[in-house]
Amino acid sequence: MTDNADLPPVALRAAELAPRTRSLYPEPFAARVAGREKRALGDPFGLRNFGVNLTRLPPGAQSALRHAHSRQDEFVYVLEGRPTLITDRGRTALAPGMCAGFPAGSGDAHCLVNETDRDVLYLEVGDRTAGDAVEYPDDDLVAVFADGRWSFARKDGTPY
């Protein structure tokens, strides 16, 4: 017989998961996403092929550095608030019920910023394809996803 303590939960309240506020970015880049709060919704269920985060951006916060993935798709769905989506095509005002997707390899660098006086809450979904590389066109930074973790370097290859 299986011990239920070893099984993932059947369901849970997303707001009760501990938030991750620490960024994976090296400094000085981590400071630019200060205030961002992510709750990894898929991890407690043992999801391995894709990640799901419930992310809160307080006023003035941004989701990430503007970036584009080589192998991983990304999707966002706005639940609350009015973030601004910044892509290679410019700025787009988003509202609750709106969504955006970023196919792997498109080269369309993107991020969300909260330029309002109210929190933004959104779901972000991304796959976990190994060998992904991330370009940050506005910053001296590149990232590679290998062996289940991200590593960061300058564009000339010097590690952080």
Results as ranks from 00 to 15, higher is better:
residue 1 M to H: 11
residue 4 N to T: 14
residue 4 N to Y: 11
residue 5 A to Q: 13
residue 6 D to A: 15
residue 7 L to S: 15
residue 11 A to F: 12
residue 11 A to K: 11
residue 12 L to V: 02
residue 13 R to Y: 14
residue 13 R to P: 07
residue 14 A to Q: 07
residue 16 E to L: 05
residue 16 E to I: 03
residue 17 L to Q: 10
residue 17 L to E: 08
residue 17 L to C: 11
residue 18 A to N: 10
residue 22 R to L: 14
residue 23 S to L: 00
residue 23 S to P: 00
residue 24 L to Q: 10
residue 25 Y to I: 08
residue 25 Y to H: 08
residue 28 P to H: 01
residue 29 F to I: 13
residue 29 F to Q: 13
residue 30 A to E: 01
residue 30 A to S: 09
residue 30 A to C: 03
residue 31 A to Q: 14
residue 31 A to T: 14
residue 32 R to N: 03
residue 33 V to N: 01
residue 34 A to H: 00
residue 35 G to L: 05
residue 36 R to C: 00
residue 37 E to G: 08
residue 43 D to Q: 15
residue 46 G to W: 01
residue 49 N to F: 13
residue 50 F to Y: 06
residue 51 G to M: 07
residue 51 G to Q: 08
residue 53 N to F: 09
residue 53 N to Y: 11
residue 53 N to P: 00
residue 56 R to T: 15
residue 63 S to F: 07
residue 64 A to M: 10
residue 69 H to W: 05
residue 70 S to N: 06
residue 70 S to W: 03
residue 74 E to M: 01
residue 79 L to H: 02
residue 80 E to Y: 08
residue 82 R to D: 12
residue 82 R to L: 09
residue 83 P to W: 08
residue 85 L to W: 01
residue 86 I to H: 11
residue 87 T to N: 03
residue 87 T to V: 04
residue 89 R to I: 05
residue 89 R to D: 14
residue 91 R to I: 03
residue 93 A to D: 14
residue 97 G to S: 03
residue 98 M to S: 10
residue 99 C to D: 14
residue 100 A to D: 01
residue 100 A to N: 00
residue 102 F to G: 01
residue 102 F to T: 03
residue 103 P to Y: 12
residue 103 P to A: 15
residue 104 A to I: 07
residue 104 A to P: 11
residue 105 G to H: 06
residue 106 S to P: 01
residue 107 G to I: 06
residue 108 D to M: 04
residue 109 A to T: 09
residue 109 A to F: 07
residue 110 H to I: 00
residue 111 C to S: 14
residue 112 L to A: 07
residue 112 L to H: 06
residue 113 V to C: 02
residue 113 V to G: 01
residue 113 V to Y: 00
residue 114 N to K: 12
residue 114 N to C: 10
residue 120 V to R: 07
residue 121 L to Q: 13
residue 126 G to N: 09
residue 127 D to M: 07
residue 127 D to Y: 04
residue 130 A to S: 12
residue 132 D to L: 10
residue 132 D to S: 10
residue 133 A to L: 13
residue 134 V to H: 06
residue 134 V to S: 05
residue 135 E to M: 09
residue 137 P to N: 02
residue 137 P to A: 04
residue 140 D to I: 13
residue 141 L to P: 03
residue 142 V to W: 03
residue 143 A to L: 04
residue 144 V to I: 12
residue 144 V to Q: 12
residue 145 F to K: 00
residue 147 D to Y: 10
residue 147 D to A: 15
residue 147 D to F: 13
residue 148 G to S: 06
residue 149 R to L: 07
residue 153 A to N: 02
residue 155 K to R: 15
residue 158 T to L: 07
residue 159 P to V: 06
residue 159 P to S: 06
residue 160 Y to V: 05
